[in-house]
Write a protein that binds this DNA or RNA. Structure first.
Lengths: 335, 335
DNA sequence: CTGAAAGCGCTAACAG
DNA sequence: CTGTTAGCGCTTTCAG
């Protein structure tokens, strides 16, 4: 490995001088500058970032902890974070917590030992045990998608997302509206949905709930079963369903189809998250999109602000989702 | 930040002794050991990995460069890599090249400067300019999914994947078989497919090719158009199509459906990659799966072998894909 | 404008 | 068993 010492010796100057030209510091006599740069090129010298970190106490590294990288939603967020971090001269260390709170804690300690400049966590649950220690330890931690205690956080208003779906259904002339997913939902989609309906003097009749769990990869099958069961036991009255997320929505759509119902002719469906396949499925799925790029951008901005300006105050940045209407809800009941 | 010095002073011992107990070295008198550990706990001391790296010349960091993290296929690979690396005590720095060869080069230099112990690249193209410099610079580089010059690589036999699809079609009694995708395809799926057909005295008639590009997010739409155009201009004779990847397969399926053809009653379809949604679409899509976990595991193993044992020889590890049969090809033409 | 010297936090001989 | 010393590669005063 070639070091500054090598360069210095070859150029007949001191290490400090090499350091100065590498970092564009001060004024170094043009002649020496050129000579040094030439040797740097020749030997393809890159300053050792580890040594730089040690002295500057800055690693230009950001730790990112997510429940699982392969989940399309998280991987899109990570991509957004990486792109934004890279623009600012940072790299990211990605950690897969597997939704396990112990591993989250473990990764935090690892990242702490690695002297990362900041950490972005997409928490698995609404708590982050042992995080306080780290906070006390002067390293900025930002939670993304979930708000926890006194941590800075970047959130998306699921309530407003739900409200937008309600408005959409109302505009399309639906009167008898349902919901598929867990009740209550932790994020508040259902609450926002119901509140907005109420403003328009509508409500979800109790028989229009299809309660179902929705987490993980099997969401679609779980919801398929729940929906099928529902259809056998109830007379379907609703003409539109809001479903807690896209994957669950696919499960529901398949159940409805297999029961002989047509989407959107008989039934409108709207999902949440606007995952990749919403635009690829048949029918294409209307869905509430989270502003992923913005989430990445804002998160990095806030974190860097904390890092560089030692901002003391807590941020809770609330971003707005937006509904993307596709075929699954494109029938106007008024007409 | 609390350092070894703090611990040492508080315990009334030297830094070396602290270092020894932290690293489980040598024998330290039990009494001192306990005293030191107690203080370590109290102060929540974690050794500074940056300083450790500087002296040991090992960072326990692996760089991963991928075309785009948010692509489900790549994100699954990254997850597999992360999990495997973590088991071995390594963390990964994830870099998004955006399929841009300049950025790939740029990231390589950054990673080099960061003293990562090794780099895994999922290359965008079949070349890696300027990588040779790095190789010369003693840092192990492994290419994943694509084989390049003299680099170590972990590959999946697309040829064998194609062959497996051919055997499947033959078993199902298809005689008139087609292919949708680029001709020739770089990875060799088509070649393997044709060769296997030939073994069984079958071939793809020239009118059974639907040539189409397939890369990127719009693959599905591009293939939809190509397929629709094909259907208008040709009499469909094939009863089964092998499609270059899943996304393209969805595009083709939609085109066929819109044309009034039923899958699999009229036409069997098999895709490639076994992406998440193959199991979620209707009909569910038969697809050739790449052994992603194994890819992650093997890649990390080979890389660590290079790192730790300074292995000189080149590896080219070829892994086998496997066909997953789902509804889209579950009709037996013999019957 | 430039070199010498000290030090970032940790490890590894080398004595004792 | 344990302390002293030197040094990893780089930056940063401080003189000159």
């Amino acid at each position: 490995m070639t070091t500054m010492k090598d360069i210095a010796e070859k150029a007949g100057v001191s290490r400090s001088t090499v350091s100065r030209v590498i970092n564009g510091h001060d004024s170094v006599k043009e002649e020496k500058r050129k000579k040094i740069m030439k040797i740097v090129e020749e030997l393809n010298f890159k300053p050792n970032k580890v040594a730089q970190s040690l002295v500057s106490n800055k690693s230009y590294l950001i730790g990112v902890i997510a429940p699982n990288i392969s989940n399309p939603f998280y991987s899109e967020i990570i991509e957004a974070l990486e792109i934004e971090a890279n623009k600012k001269g940072y790299n990211i260390i990605v950690c897969n917590s597997g939704g396990n709170i112990e591993r989250e804690k473990n990764y935090l300690e690892i990242l702490y030992g690695r002297q990362v400049d900041g950490i972005i966590v997409i928490p698995s649950e609404y708590k982050l045990p042992h995080f306080q220690e780290l906070i006390d330890n002067d390293i900025p931690v930002l939670t993304l998608t979930k708000n926890i205690n006194n941590f800075d956080s970047v959130l998306v208003s699921h309530q407003n997302g739900g409200a937008e779906v309600a408005r959409h259904f109302i505009e399309m002339g639906h009167k008898n509206i349902g919901y598929i997913g867990p009740v209550p939902d932790k994020e508040g989609k259902l609450l926002g949905f119901k509140n907005e309906l109420k403003k328009h003097c509508l409500e979800i009749e109790s028989s229009n709930y299809i309660e179902s769990d929705f987490a993980g990869r099997s969401a679609s099958q779980v919801v398929y079963k729940a929906t099928t069961k529902y259809l056998k036991e109830h007379d379907l009255k609703a003409t539109a369903f809001f479903v807690v997320n896209d994957l669950a929505a696919f499960g529901a759509i398949h159940a409805f189809s297999d029961f002989g119902l047509k989407i959107p002719e008989d039934l409108s469906i709207v999902g949440f998250d606007n995952t990749f396949f919403a635009a690829e499925s048949r029918p294409t799925l209307s869905s509430v999109a989270q502003p992923i790029e913005e989430m990445g951008k804002v998160s990095i901005e806030i974190l860097l602000d904390k890092i560089n300006n030692k901002e003391e105050k807590y941020f809770t940045k609330l971003l707005e989702p937006y509904l993307i209407v596709r075929d699954s809800s494109r029938i106007n009941k008024k007409s």
